[in-house]
Simulated assay, not measured.
Amino acid sequence: MSTLASRTVGESGPRVVFLHGLFGQGRNWHTIALRLAERGYRVTTVDLPNHGRSPWTETQDYGVMAEEVAELLAELGEPVTLVGHSMGGKAAMTLALRRPELLTALVVVDISPVSYPAERSGSDFDRFLTAMRAMDLAALTSRSDADKALSEAVPDPTVRGFLLQSLVRDREVGWRWRLNLDVLHAHLADLGRFPEPPEGAVFDKPVLWIAGAESGYVREDNRAAMTALFPRTRLVRVKGAGHWVHSEQPDTFLSALAQFLDDAATG
């Protein structure tokens, strides 16, 4: 039985499952999930290990993440369209190459099946994690204290607000992170890599690849790696969006996703 926390909206229709990125949680997809449910889809949002309400583990490994998500998908009892952003996109691609029978289609959001140089993929995230780990939670009297404590390391208020969604206050223990900061920091370099696919593995079902036009995570020289593993891929670049495409341009993102889902549902 899967240990991952999840939530499903919609009572019938084709199944869609969402995986969030680093520092995220399933609730990041809630608005899009509701809008898809209104269109007749049954949508499940998942908290990946060491995030949200899912259990903490001793590692953050794409193979392990893929196995845990595969357990959840098997319990749903029918193939799904799997949507993954960033870290969740790599986990989704890993699963698709290892357990293709669990999927009808795949959507990858602003990430490529490549290993990124540490200076490109990890420097900001390392700074964020260092600042979050250094925060004296016992000294916090309000969420605004936490916002101020992160302001130097995370100057963008939108990104800061996103990170602070995982800071919660319990009546018994006080402020705590829902993120396993120590494990995420220890495995940050691993998250920048893409695991070696099984020999000869190819996912030959429909794939939608959505990239932010202002993001550096999907480059022209990444196309060869993508199409070698996922030959039925269609790439959509969203203008005015960076790495967090679905939050920066939600209407455009939803339009592209819904069209893909409708096409997949009708064969």
Rank of each mutant, 00 (worst) to 15 (best):
A92D: 11
M87H: 05
L95A: 10
V107Q: 01
V83D: 11
M132G: 03
A149E: 15
K90V: 06
L150H: 02
T104E: 15
A96K: 08
L137S: 02
A131E: 02
L95P: 02
V109S: 00
K90R: 07
A105V: 00
L140K: 13
L102C: 06
A91R: 05
I111M: 15
K90I: 07
D124T: 14
K90G: 09
V114N: 01
R98D: 02
S151P: 13
V114R: 04
P113L: 07
S112Q: 01
D126A: 15
A105N: 00
A138R: 15
M135Q: 13
V154M: 11
A131K: 03
R98P: 01
A105W: 05
R120K: 14
A153H: 01
S86C: 10
L106E: 03
L95T: 03
M93N: 01
K148H: 14
L129I: 13
R143P: 06
L82V: 01
R99D: 08
E101Y: 05
V108S: 11
A139I: 09
L97Y: 01
H85I: 03
A139Q: 06
E101W: 07
A149D: 11
V154Q: 09
P117D: 07
L102P: 06
S112H: 05
S112C: 06
T81K: 11
L137D: 02
A91D: 04
A91H: 03
D124H: 14
A91Y: 06
D124I: 09
S115I: 12
M93L: 05
A118R: 15
L140R: 10
P100C: 04
R133H: 08
S112P: 08
R127Q: 12
V80R: 02
T94P: 05
P113H: 07
G84D: 03
E152H: 04
G88T: 01
P100F: 00
A134L: 09
A134W: 07
T94S: 09
L102R: 04
A146F: 09
A134I: 09
A149G: 08
L103F: 03
G84C: 05
L137M: 02
L97W: 00
I111R: 09
D147R: 15
V154L: 11
A91F: 00
D145V: 02
L82M: 04
M132I: 01
V107E: 00
A139P: 04
V107T: 01
V114F: 02
L103Y: 00
K90D: 04
M135I: 10
A146E: 06
R99G: 05
M93V: 07
L102Q: 08
M135K: 09
R99Y: 15
R133N: 04
V154I: 12
L106H: 06
D147P: 03
L103Q: 00
V83M: 11
G89H: 02
R98Q: 12
L95H: 00
T81R: 10
S115Q: 09
